[in-house]
Design a protein around this nucleic acid. Structure first.
Length: 274
DNA sequence: AGGCAGGCTTTTA
DNA sequence: TAAAAGCCTGCC
């Protein structure tokens, strides 16, 4: 089926935004997008027109929520005043088209545990190795092969050697701790119902190897708490340079996480010095 | 109590 | 060689 999307929706920017590590480029404007037990091939075929290799029913049931197409990003960007905050305005222009996805909780948690102290290409590589080691070999609707993201039990069943083979380094024990936590039922989505953002972050931080940054990314990208503002090295530098008195939290609530993502999209500070 | 230094695996630039 | 979407431990 085809869809037209007039609000922000740039697949390339989302694919490179650093929130998902498993979108696979199939062409210049086309990606394979795995999510839980589903897999979508999506391509931009016109200015605001996209071809999805699924039907209406699956689109409504799975993908509309995954892409969070109900949110109005033009309105979220419009809250930034160019004169009052030229830095964030520029970041939002660069990042225009990015949406915060609703990703799988377990996959997001593991992906961001893996992300610590590494750059994005290295994260992708380890996630891919993990999928090949413990995931299932599957074919998408075009008949092409891909690997699913392994569930907690499959990861927990890996030997130390197999986990180490995913180039996880010292994060091996963290990934294993997360798998055991999930197998024990600690990642049920329902257990986060009615839980505040701060409490959700605290719950995840009880897992060994999950600190404030990893927990924040997981809550933002999987629980879709758009006001959560992860601070990594890149954002920390940007905050120091652009917001010496602190980021104006009240002004940008309840979408601080979206603005953080625009700031991240600007790239490393060294590349953005004017 | 809360902050800070050092160490940790491996890849990337 | 430094830095990378950090976290843990030990020390003060």
């Amino acid at each position: 089926m085809n869809i037209t999307m007039n609000d922000d929706f740039d697949l390339k920017k989302i694919a490179e935004s650093g929130q998902c590590f498993r979108w696979e480029p199939l062409g210049r404007e086309s990606w394979r997008i795995p999510f839980r037990d589903h897999c979508l091939r999506a391509a931009r075929i016109g200015e605001s027109t996209f071809e999805l290799d699924c039907g209406e029913e699956e689109y409504e049931r799975i993908w509309r929520g995954y892409f969070a197409l109900d949110e109005n990003y033009a309105a979220i960007r419009a809250r930034i005043e160019e004169r009052a905050d030229p830095y964030l305005y520029r970041a939002a222009e660069i990042g225009r088209g990015i949406r915060i996805l609703r990703q799988d909780l377990w996959e997001t948690l593991v992906s961001f545990i893996i992300s610590q102290n590494r750059n994005i290409p290295a994260i992708r590589r380890s996630v891919d190795l993990l999928c090949r080691s413990a995931g299932e070999r599957r074919t998408d609707r075009a008949g092409e092969e891909y690997f699913s993201f392994p569930g907690p039990a499959a990861v927990a069943a890996l030997s130390d050697g197999e986990l180490k083979g995913c180039a996880l380094g010292y994060r091996c024990e963290y990934v294993r701790a997360a798998a055991e936590h999930a197998v024990a039922g600690g990642l049920e989505l329902s257990s986060f119902d009615g839980v505040s953002d701060e409490e959700a972050i605290e719950k995840l931080m009880r897992i060994r190897g999950v600190g404030l940054k990893v927990a924040s990314c997981t809550v933002l990208f999987a629980l879709h708490r758009l006001n959560v503002f992860p601070v990594d090295t890149r954002i920390r530098k940007a905050l120091g340079l652009e917001y010496p008195d602190g980021f104006p939290d009240e002004r940008y609530a309840p979408y601080r996480g979206v603005y953080q993502q625009y700031m991240f999209a600007l790239g490393p500070p060294s590349r953005t010095r004017s």
